[in-house]
């Protein structure tokens, strides 16, 4: 068993669904090492903080601001615990576009990174257009990053979990949802497009994080298999890490 390295400081991790893995790991740590600094989380979509945003008009986030309860919650955590603030904001837009095989299968060539070969039979969409498609859906996340910096100053953003390579794992989790909708045509998108779209979102988020005054932290190596995919024993579902994943992220943040 690996030697325990005590957590050296308080952490505050802010985000949406990827907060769950951190929360689960933080709970285990708190129960096991109650006297050590702790990791606390804020899920910005929880009712207690609602509304997440004010000032969003017809999908235009340019004048958005965090809701007062959310701001108060963040400020309270910072005042009371003086934590390192980390973000796990966003991290699922790529799954909307490319987790399951589109009826018009697509892939793209990612400049500077080869990854798995292009998916056979898939239409190649220019990278610039995939980027535009992602950016359109990432506007709320870009706004969150900007507003987080306004609220806390410098922060660390944790890259979203890599995709899971195992198609059976994904299909098992997708089946109940898509059983009626897919009419028996459920298929996981090719491993290549799933890999590349995660990489492209990581690039876009890095640009946004650094533009907002944050620091981008790649996902810890400990959670990745030999090919860079999310280890199955660190996956909660096709799109999220589990408590083991959360613990690895906490350890990586604590070591910065």
């Amino acid at each position: 068993m690996a030697e325990h390295r005590p957590q050296s400081r308080n952490l505050l991790v802010i985000g949406q669904s990827h907060v769950a893995a951190i929360r689960a790991a933080a709970k285990v740590h708190r129960e096991t090492y109650p006297d050590e600094p702790r990791t606390r989380v804020i899920h910005t979509l929880e009712k207690v903080h609602a509304p997440e945003f004010e000032g969003v008009v017809n999908g235009d986030y340019s004048q958005a601001r965090f809701g007062p309860k959310l701001v108060a919650a963040i400020e309270d955590q910072i005042q009371r615990h003086d934590p390192l603030v980390a973000s796990v904001i966003g991290g699922n837009v790529h799954n909307v576009l490319a987790l399951m095989r589109h009826p018009r299968p697509f892939d793209f060539l990612l400049g500077g990174e080869e990854g798995p070969p292009p998916d056979a039979g898939a239409e190649i969409v220019p990278e610039a257009l995939v980027r535009v498609a992602l950016e359109a859906r990432l506007q709320p996340d870009f706004t969150r990053l900007r507003l987080l910096h306004d609220a806390v100053g410098p922060f660390v953003h944790v890259e979203s979990p890599p995709p899971v390579r195992d198609e059976h794992f994904i299909v098992e989790h997708a089946e109940s949802w898509f059983r009626e909708r897919s009419q028996g045509q459920l298929a996981v998108a090719g491993v290549g497009v799933r890999w590349r779209i995660w990489r492209l979102v990581s690039r876009l988020m890095r640009e946004a994080v650094e533009g907002a005054g944050g620091r981008f932290m790649p996902v810890p190596g400990a959670v990745r298999d030999g090919d860079g995919f999310l280890r199955l024993d660190h996956a909660a579902d096709p799109t999220h890490g589990n408590a083991a994943y959360g613990a690895a992220v906490i350890a990586a943040l604590d070591s910065l």
């Binding site: 669904s17 929360r23 929880e46 699922n92 589109h102 009826p103």
Partner: peptide
């Protein structure tokens, strides 16, 4: 419509994270 369905499913998976707030 496919992307709309996927967004619904991903949102559901993300919402399920809200069910465990005992952290």
């Amino acid at each position: 419509p496919f992307t709309r369905n996927m967004a619904d499913w991903v949102e559901t998976m993300c919402d399920e994270a809200l069910l465990d707030q005992d952290g």
